[in-house]
Design a protein around this nucleic acid. Structure first.
Lengths: 257, 257
DNA sequence: AAGTGGTCTAGACCACAAA
DNA sequence: TTGTGGTCTAGACCACTTT
């Protein structure tokens, strides 16, 4: 087979996603990235669903396969999709394992990962306090669900967690009973909300009275207070969580770079 | 101009870095990445130095410009080089700003970045204890430099840091006097050691006696204990650091994803 | 065998920075 | 004007998975 290529001639540009002249534009691969991300956020491409192949995507947005590929690679880097050679590209799903591994930072002294067990759990509906309302972007005293949980590791009670959620985004949460160990897969599976990242603020404090009685601790025991804002892929704070960790035999592990 | 391309014929493969048949091989771009990284680690490409252009690098390793580009992009992602359109690619330098921003995690309540001031500093040479020797991979009671520093923010003393270093890797450190606010740029500039990342272990503890007197704290004050292992680009633990942070008005900030 | 992602090439054009 | 990195294309071949 022989193919002939004429170089040096002006090639008429084909119509593509860049030509709509609306929005901020940018590189083609970025526009494809944005378009696919919008389809994921909208729910059109739900977690676990297979994306169009590189060639299909390229055809849909009138770009070359290489450009579609770059958009997909960037989506993978952002953690929104997973790619598997020979199988395809899939919208990322939040599993118990990844959720606990990425978002539960308590480790044993030797650095080993440990899986916390649930000791007790109560869910109730109440008005948000000022701090919670501000964090979640709600009106003062708006209704929220409060999930209060106590967890243990190796039969030793090690933490108390209070998660606060907007009742509007999580209808019926209170009546589900027995929530799973990891909450984020539940948010995704049952409410279509995917947690992309979480910002935490850590302090060493003397254990508050309420927590001391809950965990059976002596007054003045030093504990780690962790204030978490969990952020969804569309950008807003979805969950506000206040936790207290006992760090006698465990530590909170971070890697900086 | 007309160019003619014959497809379907076997093209004789040109010699390239893949053909030495030694080592673990892998994709070409990975081999270029490894080769350039080795040149950076060896010091042949020192921090701040400009790398060969994409085309020069492609010629050196007998690959296409696109493949060299992919290797450089991966180096940039690893933080080993910085790329600037129109200027070139440069081996990354550790500056005071990046060092303090990435590795000093204390923030104000409103999340604002703060720059700590040095209050006092002592450097001495002593034998390593068991924990330090193990962390640094040294023989028991090997000689180390201990840098003890107290820092303040807004005129309030907030932390005590003890950094421990192998005397062999940092000759003459004790006699330098007045060390800079950020140590990592010094390691790079004067000892050719670039810190790539740091692993930290956090605990809430009652302030140890020695630290209490140093920071003028009441006994039993809860403080955050941070154990840090700073790791160089060649992989080994370069610095072992034990810090105590006062978190009354500040917090340790982390972003998980 | 067909379809997918992964690697690689050769070439074009654009945007930016410095001489 | 020259050289650099940044984007984009068209095509080839490879490796892996499923039918």
């Amino acid at each position: 087979m022989i193919s002939v290529c004429f170089d040096g001639f002006w090639i008429v540009k084909e119509a593509n996603v860049m030509d709509d002249l609306s929005g901020p534009a940018g590189p083609l691969y970025q526009q494809v990235y944005d378009a696919v991300m919008a389809r994921i956020i909208s729910g059109e491409l739900a977690p676990g669903v297979m994306l169009p192949s590189e060639f299909d995507l390229a055809a849909q947005y009138a770009v070359s396969q290489g450009t579609a590929r770059k958009a997909l690679s960037k989506l993978e880097l952002s953690g929104l999709v997973e790619r598997h050679q020979g199988k395809g590209t899939f919208v990322a799903t939040t599993t118990d394992e990844t959720s606990l591994f990425h978002f539960f930072r308590l480790r044993q002294s030797d650095g080993a990962q440990v899986i916390p067990q649930l000791v007790s759990e109560t869910v109730r509906k109440r008005p948000a306090n000022a701090r919670e309302a501000a964090a979640l972007g709600l009106a003062a005293r708006a209704s929220v669900f409060e999930v209060m949980r106590v967890r243990s590791i190796n039969d030793a009670v090690v933490c108390a967690e209070q998660s606060v959620l907007d009742v509007v985004k999580f209808p019926g949460l209170k009546d589900r009973g027995g929530l799973p160990n990891a909450l984020y897969p539940l948010y995704q599976r049952n409410y279509g909300i995917t947690i992309a990242r979480a910002d935490e603020q850590l302090r060493a404090v003397a254990v508050p009275e309420a927590v001391a009685s809950l965990l059976a601790l002596a007054v003045n025991t030093p504990v780690m207070e962790v204030e978490r804002r969990a952020i969804g892929i569309s950008g807003g704070v979805t969950e506000f969580r206040l936790s207290y960790y006992l760090t006698q035999n465990l530590h909170y592990a971070v890697s900086l770079r």
